[in-house]
Simulated assay, not measured.
Amino acid sequence: MTATAVHETLAAQPLTDHHCHGVVTEGLDRPGFESLLTEGAPWPGISPFDTPVGVAVRRHCAPLLDLPRHAPAEEYLARRAELGPREVNRRFLTAAATDVFCVDTGYTPHPLTAPHELAEAVGGSAFEVVRLENVAESTVRAGVEPDAYGAAFRAAAEEAVRQPGVVAVKSVAAYRTGFDLDPARPTDAEVTEAARRWLATGGRLADPVLVRHLLWTAVDLGLPLQLHTGFGDNDIRMHRVDPAHLTDWLHLSAGTIPVLLLHCWPYQRQAAYLAAVFEQVYLDVGLTLHHVGPARARAVLEEALEITPFRKLLYSSDAYGLAEFYLLGALSFRQGLGALLQDRVEADELSLPDALRIVRWTGSANARRLYGLPSETVPRRD
């Protein structure tokens, strides 16, 4: 009866997905689908279907396409094409039972649904997360002198976050420099000299001084800051994206803005430590969950929750491109969290009321509180 109560509460809890992306609106052939199934690139003779996430798609997503569990990849893709992207996206988004989406709109190599389209698919609500590197790069493309870059970037960022529905900002410093940076706010002279170097060479924002300037500008903006940490594509230098590298910066920025550590794997324990000792730090294990699938979600969540205060863990899917990732993220979270809470209740290490409170907090209430979202669940239209 205890286990049933925990799982039933999780199943009935609409999720607030505090970090996600749009899904593709075009039909996908096998190479197109497989390219979105992996953080790497498909290699000759090695299919992304032959990975934990590929197996999880065939096991847990196939039934929503009216296929048997573990349907072969060819049958899965044929049925997906038969239904068409609109119907496929509707089925998976509805099954994920997510009613609030905080959408990072800054990565669009494919045509993707807009935030309002995600919300409309389930009768929910969508908000926007502004990617600050995009703002900086747009500032440079618009034309700016080195000594005016700092002020121009800040003005552009302030304008971006004033737009309706914006609730947070994000940085992908992990991809550009890593976190082993000088934690101090750079001087105006340092920013000007770094901007001069960048304007001379062009390309993406990857100068350590300007990345530091971006992070401190985020502090000045006053909104929650999301930071990609840990697992990502091969632009990442994994040893440099351990969030523990942020310790000195977190000391210097204490008392300012919430800092959201995204994804975290394999550094979920380091992230948990930071959340335990810094008031402003929160974390999720999104992206990780759909890549490990329901089979290993509990293990990842268990490590993340070893010392994390329960008001500090948030849910995210980090779904991008494939609507399947919305379902897998939600399913992995519900099954993994349910199993570990169930065992703690049965061992009398946790009361049932406490377990149900943790479900409500981590599934939705923590994110709603942090981002200032409405506390009431938006009614769903099935």
Rank of each mutant, 00 (worst) to 15 (best):
F333G: 04
L246F: 11
G84A: 06
T362G: 02
Y149N: 01
V211C: 11
G230T: 10
A304F: 04
E158G: 14
H263R: 07
S253K: 06
V57S: 04
L301A: 10
F278W: 05
D354S: 15
A81R: 11
L352F: 15
G255C: 04
T192K: 01
V135T: 10
Y371T: 12
A323Q: 03
P309C: 10
V378W: 12
T362E: 08
A114Y: 05
C102D: 02
G336P: 15
V140M: 01
V144W: 02
D188L: 08
P68C: 03
P186T: 06
A355S: 14
D242G: 09
H7N: 06
A12M: 06
V6P: 00
T4N: 07
Q13V: 10
Q163I: 10
V219M: 07
R296S: 11
A155F: 09
P309R: 03
P63E: 04
L112R: 00
P379V: 08
P243I: 08
E145C: 07
E137R: 09
D382I: 09
G54A: 09
T247Q: 00
Q226T: 05
A11T: 13
T113K: 04
A299C: 07
G202L: 03
P294M: 12
K170L: 11
Y267Q: 01
F278R: 02
V209N: 08
P243Y: 09
Y267D: 00
P14G: 11
E26H: 14
R197P: 02
L370T: 15
E128W: 05
T362Y: 07
R196L: 08
P31R: 01
N89P: 02
G286H: 11
P72R: 04
L340W: 11
D318R: 10
T108R: 14
A78V: 01
D354C: 11
G336C: 13
P72T: 08
A254M: 00
L262G: 09
D354K: 12
L210Y: 07
R237P: 00
V211Q: 06
V23T: 02
V23L: 01
C61W: 02
V122Y: 09
I46A: 14
D207K: 02
V241S: 03
A12Q: 13
S316K: 12
V292K: 02
G54M: 01
R59M: 08
V161N: 11
R269Q: 01
Q13N: 07
A151P: 15
R380M: 13
R154F: 09
T308S: 15
P186R: 03
P224D: 08
W43F: 05
E120M: 13
R311A: 14
V57N: 02
G40F: 02
H70G: 04
F92C: 01
G203P: 08
V219N: 04
